[in-house]
């Protein structure tokens, strides 16, 4: 008799343990963020009542606590404030070391703590310009009615402007 626990480890794992978020409308009310991201846009929600632009996007304004929100585009280029190159203990799914992290200042918005891709070890310096990099990640098989549909997913990082 097969052992279902072990067979999961040998093949696939639970979707609820995936490192990337669920992106379908059935599983998140900010699915628009991911739809925008697929078009190369970095967006968040702006409160029409008080003007606050929290990141990540919300369905409730954390400042005035109303839900009168709209989607706005944020800059897709920014400047390296600080960075570090992680050599050990990198979680599965993030490739071979080093895993490069940077604080990226988006002008007029926030400083994001992001992953840097398409970048060689030793290449990055403080003050460098970076741009948004959008990439596909594994789709999620999701039951919709009796069908199992592959839900397309994306993620973002930043990469050097060359």
């Amino acid at each position: 008799m097969s052992n279902p626990g072990i067979s999961i480890l040998e093949g696939k794992y639970m979707v609820t343990m995936d490192q990337y978020p669920q992106q379908s409308k059935e599983f998140t009310q900010v699915h628009q963020f991911y739809e925008n991201l697929q078009e190369g846009r970095l967006t968040t929600t702006r409160c029409r009542d008080c003007g606050m632009e929290p990141f990540p996007p919300r369905i409730l304004c954390p400042n005035c606590h109303q839900s009168n929100l709209e989607w706005v585009d944020w800059p897709t280029t920014g400047t390296v404030v600080e960075f570090t190159e992680e050599a050990m203990g990198i979680p599965l799914g993030f490739g071979e070391p080093p895993l490069i992290h940077a604080l990226v200042e988006l002008p007029g918005k926030k400083t994001l703590f992001t992953r840097i891709v398409n970048c060689r070890e030793g290449e990055l310096a403080c003050g460098d310009q970076l741009k948004l990099a959008v990439f596909a990640v594994d789709p999620v098989p999701q039951e919709i009615g009796r069908e199992v549909v592959q839900i397309k997913r994306v993620c973002y990082a930043f990469e050097p402007v060359r």
């Binding site: 490192q19 990337y20 978020p21 203990g89 990198i90 979680p91």
Partner: peptide, 10 residues
């Protein structure tokens, strides 16, 4: 959903 995918889980 927001920091994990950036690899800052640890």
């Amino acid at each position: 959903d927001w920091d994990g995918p950036q690899g800052i889980g640890l």
